[in-house]
Each structure stands twice: as structure tokens, then as C-alpha cells.
Design a protein around this nucleic acid. Structure first.
Length: 394
DNA sequence: TCTGGGGTCCTAGGACCC
DNA sequence: TCTGGGGTCCTAGGACCC
């Protein structure tokens, strides 16, 4: 999907079309959208009354920027404070995940109705297997791609870009070629002309670290990567990664389109508005900790899982991250049990530094016998003390 | 006053078992 | 009085992705 969050926002605020808009900074009081008066539709809110990036203070990053905002050098994952310097006039909207999730489900349903073999790759991205779809091969897949693009637009007003290629690796790269609202068809014989000139980090799975290392060896493009022999790559990056890079540089990828998958972990984390100290801010931390555990319980319940491992994550003021995890005898999804074990994990961490982020994670998941309320689950234990600050913690 | 939140996969060492 | 080979599970950290 093209600039997905921003595009969804434009559906309700069409008066902002064409303007630089960034989405982010959900929790901060600034970046709030003006409330319309009782009989006023959202689309009539004056453009001038929307909050701007200028004057924004606080933590947070940009999750999406409109193409107009990208002109200023603003991109996703950029800190809001930095973005404010690049384009103070940009409109800042808070993230509205429930709304994006709804549109996500809608566009995926449209796709599945047309082409049932679809792999979910997050809120705004999917892989689709055209192989067995009637007409899926016409014009190299362009006809089907157009149908999907057109149907999504007609039913939601959202645009997307598609890449059609012999495998997922190449399709993903091709999908970037004609953004926004574009289609690109890539054949195996286009490898040298279309793929080899690209930077290595265009390969899904080669990020900043690997790019840097490749660069140190004089490798910038995928074509240059393809010149290295297999043994050299294995020596440098290990057996698995070396073989994967060797194949990727040649456009080879045999991964299937996976329609169903079970989650590996479910987690909740939050970055505080200001750094907190384990001792000095014990009460505040304890409250946030409890909330995270309660949210995690709800997530597990909603998705129908219990967890056999519980863990915590702490990010300190210097941005270093430490995690602790423990496996428990009895799988659980109850907040009080999660909190108890997460608390034990926390005690194993050195908490001298100021803390920036706290997270709680459930893994080693099992399907719960039944979804629904947990009214029958143990109460009267730690659950009843959930709101009381735990003197043992922090 | 830089730097979110929710994920996956990989590596590597140690415990433990056969 | 030296010392296998495989397997699984657990844990911590790190790279990467959307």
C-alpha cells in the first residue's frame, strides 16, 4: 500500500490532499487533531487548524510521511524533532492503529477474493501467488495486477503498488519500481539490467549493518555482489547467510507463499515520556508494568493463546537493550501470572541506569483450549493485588 | 530535545539426554 | 585418566522488517 497510514487519514481529511503530512507521536498531547463541532463533518475542519510539526516537543518517530513531506527529506523512522526542523509546516497526525487495521483487513479481503493464495506480511503488505489464478499469466501478470489495484481503489479509495515476478524476492523489489500507484513486471531475463544496478540494501534482508560490511569490501551493487564466489561469501557471512546472499544476487528464491502461520511471540512495550529510574520512579514504573501485563493478557486472550515463556525488555537511556526471559511450568495468559514472572525477570537485570522503555513479552505460545473470558481462571491470588505497588519490584 | 511498537529469524553457549 | 556425537530445550543478543 502507498503511504498507507497517511492515505487512510486522507480518506477522512480529504482537505489535506497534496500537503506534507506525517503520522506519528501517538501519545503526545500535541499532534492532536482538532475536534469538529457537533454538526460539522471531519472534511470541513479548516486546514489551518491542524497541528503542525513546528513546536512539537517530545519523543516519537514518523511512521509514515506523504510524498509531499518526503520532498523535504522526511522519511519513516525519523525522529519527529528532526522532521520538525526539515519541514516545520508539515501537518502532524497521531497514529490510529485500529483504523489502519480495519483498512488492512479490508484490502486483504479484496485480494483474497480475487487471488486466494496470499501471505500476510504486516499491516500494509502481502505476497500473492498468481500461479493458479485464472488469467494470472496474461501479459506477464499485468492484467491481474491491474484488477487487484483497481478493485482496491474502487472499494477503499486507497492506492497500492504491485511487482510481479517469478519469486518473492524479485516481486518485492519490483513493487518499489513504480511507486506510488504503479505496477512493474519483472522477468528472469531482466536480472542484469534491472536488478544488478541496484544497491545491495534493496534486497529484503540486507540492512544497514550488512550493507556497511559489504561496502567495506567494495561491494555496493547487487551486480558486484553477484561477482563474489560462494566460498568467499560463506567465509565472510557464515554458511547460511552466505548461501542466501549468493542466491539472492542471482535473483533466486524458492520460498513459497505461506498462507497460514502461527505467531511466535506476542508483546507490549512502551517508551516513557521521560526516562525513569528504578528506585526514584518505582511507583510510576510499577503502574506501567502492570498495565503492560494487562494489555498482554488481553492480546493473548483475543488471539487465543497461552504462553509458556514470559520475558521483559528494558531500553536504557543510552539506548542499550537488555532482555530476560523464563520458561514456566504452567502456560498462562493471566495478567497477574505474567506480572509475577516478568517481575522475576526484571530482578535479574541491573537497573542502575535510567530506563527509557519497558516491555513484556509472551513466547513459547500454545493454542488456548478456549477463547472467551477467563472468569474461571484463578483469582484471589496476586490478581487482586494487581494495582498495589509491589515493594519487591524496582 | 535525536532515535516507536510489534514482530521474525539467526547465532551461540550451556544444560541435559541417549 | 581420557573424553563421541547427535539431539532438544533454554536463554540473550542482534539484525532486520513493516
Amino acid at each position: 500500500m502507498d503511504a498507507f497510514y497517511a492515505s487512510v487519514e486522507l480518506l477522512r481529511y480529504p482537505q489535506l490532499k497534496g500537503l506534507p503530512i506525517v503520522i506519528g507521536g501517538s501519545r503526545n498531547a500535541q499532534g492532536r487533531v482538532p475536534q469538529p463541532s457537533a454538526d460539522q463533518p471531519l472534511s470541513k475542519i479548516a486546514v489551518a487548524s491542524f497541528p503542525r510539526l513546528a513546536g512539537y516537543t517530545g519523543r516519537g518517530v514518523i511512521t509514515t510521511a506523504t510524498y509531499a513531506a518526503r520532498q523535504f527529506g522526511i522519511g519513516s523512522a525519523m525522529g519527529l524533532m528532526k522532521a520538525a526542523k526539515l519541514c516545520p509546516e508539515a501537518i502532524l497526525l497521531p497514529v490510529d492503529f485500529p483504523r489502519y487495521r480495519h483498512y488492512s483487513q479490508t484490502f486483504k479481503k479484496i485480494i483474497v477474493d480475487i487471488a486466494p493464495t496470499m501471505e500476510d506480511r504486516g499491516i500494509d503488505e502481502v505476497y500473492i501467488d498468481f500461479t493458479d489464478v485464472p488469467g494470472g499469466q496474461r501479459e506477464g501478470g499485468r492484467v491481474l495486477a491491474r484488477l487487484i489495484q483497481k478493485t482496491i481503489f474502487e472499494e477503499t479509495g486507497l492506492t497500492c503498488s504491485l511487482g510481479v515476478a517469478p519469486n518473492k524476492l524479485l516481486a518485492k523489489m519490483a513493487s518499489e519500481f513504480n511507486k506510488p500507484n504503479g505496477i512493474a513486471i519483472l522477468f528472469e531475463e531482466d536480472l542484469e539490467s534491472q536488478i544488478w544496478p541496484l544497491a545491495c540494501n534493496k534486497i529484503n534482508g540486507i540492512g544497514p549493518k550488512t550493507s556497511q560490511k559489504l561496502d567495506r569490501h567494495g561491494i555496493q551493487t547487487i551486480g558486484q555482489l553477484a561477482q563474489r564466489d560462494l566460498n568467499w561469501l560463506i567465509d565472510q557471512f557464515g554458511q547460511k547467510t552466505g548461501m542466501w546472499m549468493y542466491a539472492s544476487a542471482r535473483g533466486q528464491d524458492s520460498r513459497p507463499v505461506v498462507v497460514h502461520s502461527e505467531p511466535v511471540s506476542i508483546s507490549r512495550e512502551t517508551t516513557f515520556e521521560r526516562d525513569l529510574h528504578a528506585k526514584r520512579d518505582r511507583a510510576a514504573l510499577g503502574e506501567i508494568f502492570t498495565q503492560l501485563c494487562q494489555q498482554l493478557e488481553q492480546d493473548l486472550e483475543r488471539k487465543g493463546y497461552v504462553a509458556k515463556s514470559i520475558g521483559v525488555k528494558v531500553r536504557f537511556d543510552d539506548f542499550s537493550i537488555m532482555t530476560r526471559e523464563m520458561t514456566i511450568e504452567q502456560p498462562t495468559r493471566v495478567a497477574s501470572m505474567i506480572r509475577q514472572h516478568a517481575g522475576l525477570c526484571l530482578k535479574r537485570l541491573p537497573l542502575q541506569r535510567a530506563i527509557r522503555l519497558l516491555g513484556v513479552r509472551a513466547s513459547n505460545l500454545r493454542l488456548a483450549e478456549h477463547k472467551g473470558t477467563s472468569a474461571h481462571e484463578p483469582r484471589g491470588g496476586p490478581a487482586d493485588k494487581l494495582h498495589a505497588p509491589d515493594p519487591q519490584l524496582f
